[in-house]
Write a protein that binds this DNA or RNA. Sequence first.
DNA 1: CTGAAAGCGCTTACAG
DNA 2: CTGAAAGCGCTTACAG
Lengths: 329, 329
Amino acid sequence: MTTINDIAKMADVSRTTVSRALNDSGYVSEEVRNKIMAIVKETGYMPSLSAKSLRTKRSGVIGVILPKISTETSSRVVNGVNDVLSNEGFQILLTDTELNKQKEVEYIRLLKSRHVDGILILATNVNQPLLDAIQAAAIPVVCLGQKLPGVTSLAYNDYDASADMTTMLLNKGYTRLAFIGISNDDPAVGQLREQAYLDKLKERNLPVKDHWMAVGDFSIDSGYEAMKSILHTSKDDLPSAVFAVTDRMAVGAMEYLKEQGFRIPADMAIAGIGASVMSKYITPALTTIDYYNQEAGQHAARLLLGKINHEQNSEKLKLSYRLILRDSV
Amino acid sequence: MTTINDIAKMADVSRTTVSRALNDSGYVSEEVRNKIMAIVKETGYMPSLSAKSLRTKRSGVIGVILPKISTETSSRVVNGVNDVLSNEGFQILLTDTELNKQKEVEYIRLLKSRHVDGILILATNVNQPLLDAIQAAAIPVVCLGQKLPGVTSLAYNDYDASADMTTMLLNKGYTRLAFIGISNDDPAVGQLREQAYLDKLKERNLPVKDHWMAVGDFSIDSGYEAMKSILHTSKDDLPSAVFAVTDRMAVGAMEYLKEQGFRIPADMAIAGIGASVMSKYITPALTTIDYYNQEAGQHAARLLLGKINHEQNSEKLKLSYRLILRDSV
DNA sequence: CTGAAAGCGCTTACAG
DNA sequence: CTGAAAGCGCTTACAG
C-alpha cells in the first residue's frame, strides 16, 4: 500500500509537507501543492484512517446503537442520521442490541474503544448500568426516543401523541376503548403512552377495565395474541375500539379481528402509532400517528455533531408528530 | 484514557506482557496473567482499536455498501450479515449509495482507507468503474444479489424465480399477462426477471404486447403509475393479470386497480416478488416470492469471512427461493 | 514556506 | 516466562 512516505519521496518533499497539502493546514506553496496533488491522484493514495485516528483522536465515525436493525422505525432513523452524517464526512458504525440490555452497555464500551467521535443510541429502556456506561465513556452521546437522565436526549412526544389519539377516539364515540401496550421497562412507549390513555379515560370518568388491556412486544404476532386475549377475557363486555401503541401490533390485532369476522370499524375500530408503510395499504387503512422518524434521525445527528464540536446545547428537545385519520376508525 | 502502558505500570510488568495476556499469545505465567486481568477489569481498560488496526492491518470491521438503507430487503440482509459478523467479533461500517453509481466507487475507496477487513456490496448494477475500484482495493469483496465478473458473487436465482411465477400465472389461465419491470441497468432485477417472462410467453407462442409492459423504479408510486399507464395504453385490449418484479410496485399497481374499481383477482390478478411483510397483510394478500434475504445475508457474510481467512471458495453460488401463493391470483 | 523529530497505542520478532 | 526496541502511518509543535 502506498503511504504518505511514498508520496513524499515521489514528490521529493517531506511527509510533513504532504500532510499539510492533504489537510490544507499550514502553508504550502502553490507549486508544491500541485505537484503533490497530482501524485496523489495518480497513485490513488488514501491516507490510513487508523493512523490518522490514532494520532488525532478523531475517527470520523459515529457509533449507532439500534434496538433492532430490521425495523421500519430503525431504518428510517438511520436513513435520516446518514443523511446529515455522510454530508459531513462521517461514517456510521452500526450496532444491534436485539433488545438486549446488556448488549447496550457492551456496545458503548466497544464503540468507545473504536475511537468513535460520538454515539447515537435509540434506547428502549432506562437503567443504571446503561447510564453508568455512558458516563464512563466520556464521549458525546445523544439518545433518541427516550429521555435519559444526564444525557442529551431527543424524545418523541409520546404522552401528547397518545393523549390526542385517545381523545380523538373518545370524541368519535368509542368510549369502550381497549388498549394494547408494551412493557413498562420502556418509559416512552410503555409508560407514557399508557399513562396518557389512562388519564384521558379518567378525565371523562370512563371505566378502565383490566380485561380491555393487554401487553405485546412490538411484533405483529403479539398484537394478534393480545387482541385474542382481550376478546376472550372480555366475553360479552366487548370494547368498541382498540388502540395499539405500535402499528405492527395494530396490524396483528386487525388480522385477528378479521379472522373472527369483525367488520372494521363498524364492529371494532383500530388505531396504531408509527405511520408504517403498511398502515397505508392495509384494508381498511389504519389510523395512526406519524412520528417523522427520518427527520428525528437528522435532528439527532445534528445534535450529536453539535456536541462533538463543543457547541452548547444540552436541552431536552421535543419532536413533533401528526395524527393520520384513515378508514380503520 | 488508560492505555496499555498504564496497565503495564500498575501491574509492574512490561507492556509486551500485557499485550500477551490480553491476546492470549505467547507465554504468560498464571500469576502475572491474573494480576493483569484483575487490573484490566478494575480499570475498565479497552485497547485502542485504531492502534491495533494500524499495527496489525486488521480492523475487525466489515464495510457494507447498500443501494438504499431504508428498504425492507436491505434491512433483512443487514440483519443476516450482522447475525454472523457480530458473533465473530466483527463490526459493520454502513454505507448508503442512494442508488448512485458514483458513490459505490467512492465508498469502496473510502472503506479501503478505513482498513476494513472486507466489503460486502449489494450491487444494483454492473459497470466497469465499479469493477476497477474493487480490483484496485485488493481486499476481500463479496457481492450479493448480482453477478460481478471476477468478484465472489452470491446471486439470487432471478431467472428461475421469474420463470416459475410466469409459468404459474400462465397455468392458472392468465395468458394475457402484463409486466412491470425496472431498468435494464440492473442485470438481475431488470434483465433476468424480464427475460424469463419473455421466454415463457414465447415458449407458448403467446403475444408479448408493448402496451402490457411498463417500467418502474422499485417504489410503490412507480408501480401505481406503471399500472395506470398500462391500463391507458391497453384500452380495450386489457391484460388479465400483472406481474410486477417487486412487491412494492405490485402494491402500487394494486392500489391503482382498486381505485379504478377492479376486483382482484377476478378482474385482474397481481403478483410480486420479495415477500415483504406488507404483501401478507394487504387485501387481497399478495402472491409473491420469498428470497430469504436474511439467510442470504448470513450466507454472504460467511463467504466474506471465508475469503478473509483465505479459505478457497470463489465459486458463484446460487440462493434459493420459494413461491408464496395467496389471494391476489 | 519547509523539514526533522517526537509521539499516538499497540504488536512482534528477537534476545535473554 | 519476560522485556527492550522497532515500527505501523499519520500529525503537530518547533525550529529554521
